[in-house]
């Protein structure tokens, strides 16, 4: 397997090459890189690829802020059933 074909975001099947090309073409922040490629937007919530998306943006994209987390966290931060989330079930 070539490095370019290596999968970075497993949920959305985003490759290393796709991330690199996007970050270079648009000089992306981590957030923009995520939104353009969907890396980190799958059902796991980016629990594996988050730091890689960050790193690619830092190396070949745009300058990142040291004062704010580059990729926002949103609840639910762990998988949860709709029943438990909605409250009617219990």
């Amino acid at each position: 397997m070539r490095e370019s074909e290596m999968i970075i975001c497993r949920c959305e099947e985003v490759t290393y090459q796709e991330l690199l090309d996007t970050a270079i073409t648009y000089s992306c922040s981590a957030r923009e890189l995520k939104l353009r490629t969907r890396a980190g937007m799958g059902y796991c919530g980016g629990r594996t690829c988050r730091s890689i998306v960050d790193q690619v943006a830092k190396q070949v994209g745009s300058e990142q802020s040291k004062k704010n987390i580059s990729l926002k966290y949103q609840a639910p931060i762990r998988p949860v059933n709709f029943v438990d989330l909605g409250g009617e079930g219990k």
Binding site: M1, R2, E3, E5, M6, I7, I8, R10, Y16, R47, T48, C49, S51, I52, A75, P76, R78, V80, N81, D84
Partner: peptide
């Protein structure tokens, strides 16, 4: 909020520790 119960408290301590950073290598999946 947890999937079992919802708790309330005046003081909250987050001691959630660390996570491991991945290193992608061809074939790592």
């Amino acid at each position: 909020y947890t999937d079992k119960e919802t708790f309330q408290t005046t003081n909250l301590l987050l001691a959630t520790g660390a996570a491991e950073a991945p290193v992608p290598i061809p074939g790592w999946t």
